[in-house]
Design a protein around this nucleic acid. Structure first.
Length: 429
RNA sequence: GUGGACGUAGCUCAGUGGUAGAGCCCCGGGUUGUGAUCCCGGCCGUCGUGGGUUCGAUCCCCAUCGUCCACCCCA
């Protein structure tokens, strides 16, 4: 099978009709919610210059070092399939002259690409809903953004998620802390495990997050991040906590919550779940006050987050709140060439009379038994039966597929659309 | 990138060193036009791929690809 063109590319998944209902439900809820909070959708390219991601995310992060889909195009440009959305959105606001002191609340959804080893809840092409609030400095937007995510879970019917928050301080405070931390771990270099020795050079803050039990006592005695916050960040964080308390949003302060991307500063947060195995982060983000200036825009504070669509869809599948598929409403059964022709017209009339309903016409023939089996499995509420006999008499039989006791009703072929509309009106809502 | 488990019909799985089965699905039938129950019949597989051992392998060995799980990292 290795040479087969039928083999999908590793880590790239098909979303089949059997699961698309959950995606559409999620997208609809997200769209409505973000509208309600004053966010505007925008769309940016999937491909950007490689250097944009290097500058934004950080040269020595795992994402940039080993996970990017980078290539040279025919013009010799070095390009990359976006591994995350913030860099592209920020680039777009600068490119389009949107800053100049202005403020923007933006969101987008789309595929991201990271060359990782696939496992449950982790794919090489995956989708994120990305939300960015640009030009807002205060903790109020932090709180509202988090409230938005909490509201999202409520509307989606998802409860197995918990909020963790932390503050990384300003870039300067973080740099100073990082230096101290590096010194401390260097002094205990021999006691560090292999992963942590590697992290020491790249992102020493991540050592704090190690799951290795043997590392816990060294970690416990390390200089702690909260003790090294600058006064302003401390106030900012306190204000955020007060706001979350006022909103009644439960959270846990996790001093070990650091983020894998370099651009974060001050507020960071992450929604985790215990329902998805090792891939427990479903939504996370934070403040990136320095990024825009770093990329060449006017210094502008900002905060944003990304939500993993596949992971949230998996949660929806577990809770069973969203419909996986939408079935038909009406199924038209027809047999005989003339009757099938008449049924094509009939189906269109019904669709005209009931534009929102799904009217499925039996195609490809089949005897009545087979057609009724298909009608049943389509999920339709009613079947419209049009055979040669009915056609000759100018009628159609309307049969309820969900109510055994109801006998088939004979309706006029000429006014069948209206009759179907009336049938639904009498029964629904 | 590291470690482990697994790859048999569209799906869920059984099976044996002598080239394969069940259930579901799909199609047809159970007196000539009415589904979801029941009964009967039919269709479907180069037993992931390539080598090796053997008279002979789906079953043994090796490799490879893929899937899943964990680590790493992250949404």
């Amino acid at each position: 099978m290795s040479a087969s063109i039928i083999q999908p590319v590793r880590g790239m998944n098909d979303v089949l009709p059997t699961e698309i209902g959950r995606w559409q439900f999620l997208e609809r809820v997200v769209r409505e919610l973000l509208h309600a909070y004053g966010y505007d959708e925008m769309r940016v390219p999937v491909v950007e210059q490689t250097d944009l991601f290097k500058r934004a995310i950080g040269e020595y992060t795992d994402v940039v070092e080993k996970e990017m889909y980078s290539f040279e195009d025919k013009g010799g440009e070095r390009l990359t399939l976006r591994p995350e959305a913030t860099a592209g959105i920020v680039r777009a606001t600068i490119s389009n002259g949107m800053l100049r002191g202005a403020r923007h609340k933006l969101w987008c959804v789309g595929p991201m690409f990271r060359h990782e080893k696939p496992q449950k809840g982790r794919f090489r092409q995956f989708h994120q809903v990305d939300v960015e609030a640009i030009g807002f400095a205060g903790p109020d937007i932090d709180a509202e953004l988090i409230a938005l995510t909490a509201q999202l879970w409520r509307r989606l019917g998802i409860s197995r998620v918990a909020l963790q928050i932390n503050s990384l301080g300003t870039a300067e405070a973080r740099r100073a802390y990082r230096a101290q931390l590096t010194d401390y771990f260097r002094a205990h270099h021999a006691a560090l495990d292999e992963d942590s020795q590697r992290r020491l050079e790249g992102n020493p803050l991540r050592i704090l997050d190690s799951k290795n039990p043997a590392m816990q006592s060294i970690i416990a005695h390390a200089p702690s991040l909260p003790d090294h916050l600058d006064a302003e960040s401390r106030e900012h964080f306190a204000a955020l906590r007060a706001a979350l308390d006022a909103l009644g949003i439960a959270y846990q302060v996790n001093p070990r919550l650091v983020r894998g991307l370099d651009y974060y500063s001050r507020t960071v947060f992450e929604w985790v779940t215990d329902a998805l195995g090792a891939q427990d982060a479903v939504c996370s983000g934070g403040r990136y006050d320095g990024l825009i200036a770093q990329l060449g825009g006017e210094p502008t504070p900002a905060i944003g987050f990304a939500m993993g669509v596949e992971r949230v869809v998996a949660l929806l599948e577990q809770t069973g709140t969203a419909p996986a598929t939408v079935g038909a409403d009406v199924y038209v059964v027809a047999q005989g060439d003339a009757a099938v022709r008449a049924a094509l017209v009939l189906a269109d009339r019904v669709r005209e009379a009931e534009p929102a309903r799904r009217v499925e016409l039996n195609l490809g023939g089949g005897n009545f038994k087979a057609q009724f089996r298909r009608a049943d499995r389509s999920g339709a509420a009613i079947a419209l039966v049009l055979g040669e006999d009915e056609l000759a008499r100018g009628v159609v039989q309307l049969k309820s597929l969900r109510d055994e006791s109801a006998a088939a009703i004979e309706i006029s072929l000429a006014t069948a659309g209206q009759a179907v509309a009336n049938w639904f009106k009498e029964r629904v809502r």
